[in-house]
Design a protein around this nucleic acid. Structure first.
Lengths: 110, 110
DNA sequence: CCGGATCCCAGCAGATACTG
DNA sequence: CAGTATCTGCTGGGATCCGG
């Protein structure tokens, strides 16, 4: 893959690719979107999206690993875990906005 | 925008989802990126990206179906097919730019 | 030789049951 | 409540063949 970057190359498609991969999960973007409205608990996100627990956990962990969201664990019973955007996550929002705007224009009339 | 549909797990959280789906393919974004530099032939895109033929065909067809690129077939031998961005495709570029910019910031220091 | 169709397999998402 | 473990099915990318 990596577009040949031998000697001559234009800066390759790469930076964008990273983002693509970060956001590649089926639910990543929706989760980010929901978190723009503020902190959410695990169960809330599950309700909002309808994702199964296993998948939700996986997606959240990946977003966390990519540094887009934070996971606050309140180490008590009953368990309570809240998810929120990191600074990096917030800095990503304009992209979501732009995507939303583009989408509405592109799909207007459907 | 209907946020969720309680009965089924169908959520249409936002227009962003549409974009996510449009761009979900592993190579979609890279292909768009390459096409920003101008029209390209099938084989050129293959060289640039290293994608296998089958996959390349599929991704290009999907982009075409989504109205982002155009496919010009020169019905002769040897075969010649050129791909270029549509207007919609061009209107999508700012998003790519923003993603690239964000990416470089986010990953700086690696 | 160029572009595409077909088949095959990895990887990811969904469902369910279990744990602290 | 918020996970983890596991099994299964499907999507979709890669390698291989096909038509001109």
């Amino acid at each position: 893959m990596a577009v040949f970057d031998s000697t001559t190359n234009q800066r390759t498609a790469c930076p964008v690719t990273r983002v693509q991969q970060m956001v590649a999960g089926k639910w990543k973007i929706i989760l980010l979107w929901h978190l723009t409205h503020g902190t959410h608990r695990f169960h809330e996100l599950q309700q909002l999206t309808g994702i199964s627990k296993g998948t939700l956990t996986r997606q959240l962990r990946e977003l966390e690993a990519d540094g887009l969201i934070q996971r606050h664990v309140f180490g008590e019973v009953p368990p309570r875990v809240e998810y929120s955007l990191t600074d990096a996550g917030h800095s990503f929002l304009p992209i979501l906005d732009q995507m939303a705007a583009w989408s509405e224009q592109h799909f207007q009339g459907e």
